[in-house]
Amino acid sequence: MQNVIEDLAPQAEPTSPPFASPGLAAIDQLLRDVPAFLDRIREGKNLAELARAMILTVAVGAAVFGAAMGAHRGGIQVLYSAVKLPAVMLLTTAVCAPALTAFNAAFRRQASMRRDLSLVLSSLALTCLVLAAQAPIVFLAVELGAAYHTVILLVVGCCCLAGIVGLTLFQRGLGLDPSAGRWAVGIALLMVFGVVGTQMSWTLRPFLVRPRTPEAPFVRSLEGSFLAAVVTSSRSARGIYWRESAPLPGESRRAP
């Protein structure tokens, strides 16, 4: 009888082994325990190790999503997009991270390059984890034969959702410093990140290749800027053109 009672008693859950790698532990903490994760950044504990883990997370997460995007074209484009998307993320961070420290200093908040960079990398890592989680959706759309523009819209939607999640973490991280100016700093950095990120993406395009392009290049030649493209597209939308069609790679850009 005693043995039956003991058998029916709730068993203590087996403790899961701790993560072998501190990097994996950091990623798990980023997903499960954001307050503790942010406390670690605020206290400046092992930030170099944290930064390495976050950079790796960005690289892998963005590569997975990039590969899903490139699957629309297939072939070598899968590899190209898997390489270029992490490059966009990390290069944009490298260019924009000093701006956060500068904004914090200008607003007389706590300004520490190490902590600010850790916060930006962590937000980006969470963004890329969400992107990686959505990669199967894009891949499914590709497999079901979704059209080029449909996949574009799907990718934009996935990036928006991932961006909102990352931005939420970033704003919480800024709130660790109770000084005024948290929202102004957040909005200012978002604008800098947005402008630089769009130009970086423009510079490293294409990620999804237009179906009529005969051969997918790794990177297109530098033509104008994202801003110029928005202006000219707005003119196109109003019917203002200066030639019949966009040149294919190798054709002359200028009208005869």
């Binding site: 924009c96 000093p98 701006a99 500068a102 200093a105 200008a106 402008v195 630089v196 970086m200 510079t203």
Partner: peptide, 15 residues
Amino acid sequence: GLAPATVFLIATSQT
């Protein structure tokens, strides 16, 4: 702080 972003945007734009 804004210098790296400015240099990048100017270097990659042509207008």
